[in-house]
Design a protein around this nucleic acid. Sequence first.
DNA 1: GTTGTATTGATAACCATTATCATTAATGAG
DNA 2: CTCATTAATGATAATGGTTATCAATACAAC
Lengths: 152, 152
Amino acid sequence: MHMQKSWWQKKFKKAGLRLTGPRLVIIDILSQTNNHLSAEEIYLTLRRENKSNNIGLTTIYRTLDVLVRLGIVYKFDFGDGRTRYELSEGPNGFHHHHHLVCTGCGHIVDYTDFIDEEKELLDRTEKGLAKKYNFSIHHHLIQFYGLCEHCR
Amino acid sequence: MHMQKSWWQKKFKKAGLRLTGPRLVIIDILSQTNNHLSAEEIYLTLRRENKSNNIGLTTIYRTLDVLVRLGIVYKFDFGDGRTRYELSEGPNGFHHHHHLVCTGCGHIVDYTDFIDEEKELLDRTEKGLAKKYNFSIHHHLIQFYGLCEHCR
DNA sequence: GTTGTATTGATAACCATTATCATTAATGAG
DNA sequence: CTCATTAATGATAATGGTTATCAATACAAC
């Protein structure tokens, strides 16, 4: 009786990488939250929840790197001096969104409004750019910056 | 016989900031290039061109910070571990563009294609987001990532 | 020119991230 | 299941971009 492999387990297999304890735990942490965690936040969450008290910070960084390379996790810079990460796909399938960043308090809004319109234009732009500049384009980044109601 | 004040000189005045030698030189460096310079690159360019051999790296960082606050310079993270800067407006007026980033070699293409279409959608999106999430939005960031022909 | 104060520069400190390397554990063969 | 191979881990130290400190300097208003 075998458990169904999840989407990311398949990616690990295909890349010839091992499915280790720390990697499972880190993906678990990321799948439990809607926040955009930094490496240190993942590390602290791990300790707090006793998921596995002895995963080193180094391993967190290395694992995140692997996850980004496999496309399982997206990497963001919101300007607060630390890199932040989020799962590219939730348990219920893709959940494509962009970000609205408050430059006052750092609050992040994940918005899905306008995504369809944006997507249409982005696809077109992407194709045009790829052809004109001879690039193979993998992904894009859209962020809006401003002040939220509290920081106004 | 007075020299006409440039657009950024007015911004300094309005903010009550002094127009110092180092600040003039740093803006000059930025206006001489189409590249996206890091603080250290500005520092080295300065030395190389003997613009003023004794401007400290600290001053570069501080000045860039001021310039960003005044909206004279835009700040970017292209994923190579150093912040990069470019003038928001060239000597010939605005020159709005977005960036295409090669994740292989770090090469950056400033593209203006599709900007008009993008602008229309972005304005609309911006208004919608501002209203729905009660933000005052100041600027946005769009980047495409991929591999250039050499890194393919 | 004088003066008050913002700005500067040398230095040290900071802190997120990466390199090192001996130890541990996932995986596949038998 | 057991073993051997080798990828992965974790403690520690190192790296490197950026920021804090503080005495010295220079801009700008009078």
